[in-house]
């Protein structure tokens, strides 16, 4: 008697599973789609400024504008960055605080970048001096000019 009951319960469970089975795959597909961001199409280089226009002591604030393709969209992107020359190197820093993304500002008198949100402070090379940020400011990859006297280029 107990055997018959167990058998029936097993068959009920099996039938329920089989009913749900064709939906497992599509449910997974929906999840994968949700978890997959739209792809960025290609990378680009944008010409910035000729070397002689980039200051050595104080960083120069620049508004960067370019068009990029993300998934089906052509996006107009605008970013703020600070460029400065140090020795032979050009340092191009993003103004996004690495803590939570607030825009850092350059304080001329103190020669550092300060975040207006949670007190993060970075030095001229973007290294953290104070506050909660876990990493230095992000640096753009700078490529040398293609022609002598031409503009340096940024990888975006």
């Amino acid at each position: 008697m107990k055997n018959t009951k167990d058998r029936r319960r097993f068959l009920e469970a099996l039938a329920s599973f089989l009913v749900a089975l064709p939906l497992l795959g599509p449910a997974l597909l929906a999840l994968v789609s949700f978890l997959s961001p739209a792809p960025r199409e290609g990378g680009g280089e944008i010409p910035l400024l000729p070397l002689d226009q980039i200051p050595r002591d104080q960083p120069k604030r620049i508004r960067l504008q370019y068009v990029r393709q993300v998934g089906p969209y052509r996006e107009e992107v605008e970013r703020i960055l600070y460029v400065r020359r140090e020795g032979k190197e050009v340092i191009a820093l993003s103004n996004e605080c690495t803590h939570l993304g607030c825009p850092v500002r350059y304080k001329k008198e103190k020669k550092h970048f300060a975040c207006p949100c949670h007190g993060g402070v970075f030095d001229l090379e973007g290294k953290r001096i104070e506050g909660p940020p876990p990493r230095p400011l992000n640096r753009y990859t700078v490529l040398p000019p293609k022609t002598k006297g031409g503009p340096i280029r940024l990888k975006v």
Binding site: P26, A27, L29, A30, V32, S33, F34, A38
Partner: peptide
């Protein structure tokens, strides 16, 4: 479900 997956993009 598949419609949902398409709609995300």
């Amino acid at each position: 479900l598949t419609g949902l997956a398409l709609a995300f993009h």
